[in-house]
Write a protein that binds this DNA or RNA. Sequence first.
DNA 1: TCACAAATCAATCATTTTCTTTCATTTTCA
DNA 2: TGAAAATGAAAGAAAATGATTGATTTGTGA
Lengths: 251, 251
Amino acid sequence: MLTEERHKYILDVLNSKGTIHIQEIVEVLNISESTVRRDLSLLEKENKLKRVHGGAALLQQKRTELSMNEKLLHNLPEKQRIGAYAAGLVKDGDCIFLDAGTTTYEMIKHLTAKDITVVTTGITHLELLSDKGIATYIIGGYVRSITKAVIGQTAREMLSKFRFDKTFLGVNGIHIDYGYTTPDPEEAAIKSLALKLGQHVYVLADESKFHEVTFSEIAPLEEATIITNINDPAIIKEFNSTTKIEMVVDK
Amino acid sequence: MLTEERHKYILDVLNSKGTIHIQEIVEVLNISESTVRRDLSLLEKENKLKRVHGGAALLQQKRTELSMNEKLLHNLPEKQRIGAYAAGLVKDGDCIFLDAGTTTYEMIKHLTAKDITVVTTGITHLELLSDKGIATYIIGGYVRSITKAVIGQTAREMLSKFRFDKTFLGVNGIHIDYGYTTPDPEEAAIKSLALKLGQHVYVLADESKFHEVTFSEIAPLEEATIITNINDPAIIKEFNSTTKIEMVVDK
DNA sequence: TCACAAATCAATCATTTTCTTTCATTTTCA
DNA sequence: TGAAAATGAAAGAAAATGATTGATTTGTGA
């Protein structure tokens, strides 16, 4: 049993259940408690999990989401740059999907294409969109209070009736193995659906999202183009091998 | 059973039900009362909940702030007074429809009933509603930029799947012969539909709306109860012959 | 309003479980 | 083969747990 395999098992269980017991690992992998403890210590040092008495848990950050307002303050200049770049991808007459979230919100301010139609699940986007005179459709459904996103079965049904020239998504995690992820399963389902309905799909992500994995999978990496401000050649190379990645030029 | 798992259970139940009993936790998780108490103390210290005698509750500042609807009624401007009065009609557990518009918006601030569900077409209402922790559904469809109301065929279809204990509408005209009217036919259609789906229907109207007629008919007078601050005996008598009219008392 | 019973609570302590550290053994790989 | 790394076992330390105590709060009925 390779160390890598053990680590993968531990992280897999964590990502699907949120917590893991030492005893469980000992029994399933048939290794000693000492080894498990060493593994957990190591993974903790790499910031992959948090050790707790009796086992381990996902990092707090990945389980609990920040509220919309808290998020907005985070990496704001980067988000604005990414938003502006993404807005430039929208052409006259396009019909686009705009995900809920702060980065896509920044996009709206920079939208200049004419005669575009925007479909969104982000209730914070609506006033700004319609004030700008953009033809706006809101997907109906339950309003999730933390993220101010519309979710639920009704929402998926309504969304599935649209087709988009371009889909713009926000995500919480981008990982070479686990793809795009977000904490809430319902939101992941919506994002995943919007992704399938878009001819071109873009994921907007500042650097804090890379190498992160959160609870719910949206799609594998290759199904979208990443738009980011990151300019670490190593990371770009790493992800470019699997998917397309467009950089916002840092001036 | 990991501490994290217990905490997750407690917070999950809290988020879905609002309160939790210690005994319930003891039985479900099969752990001692001591441990439960320790967990609750810890979570309270982390600001995740508030301990109450016998268990714990979600912490919500809103609970204490309001509840003084009555007092506020005196010195509020018209719309707020009407909104506050209407909010008082909403009882625990109600499922209500809230029309788009400024008067219905005022209602939200004064909503204090517990466990209510709100369905709305007013996109300006959404953030406030969900910030207050109210279960909120947005009707999907086209966002009309002037009134920030959701309209269209999709909206009517989605709306028609709901039933409401109470429907609260705003209108532009109230006339003894022409009934309730509003300028936009699409909005009229939505209002008319919401009216049919409500067990009790209330129209919120300040005095400027009386004797006015606008382009599109919503419904005849008798299909709703008017809530107004007007106190002209002549007008009250005139409309009372056809429908019910409730006055916000001016003290 | 009052008193009383029942329920809930905080504090304490013995017990159990888990953790860290250390060291001997096994495995890996040059 | 031999050094380095990984593993497992064990002992004492630390943490978590559950039971018990007496104090406090709550609800009930006079």
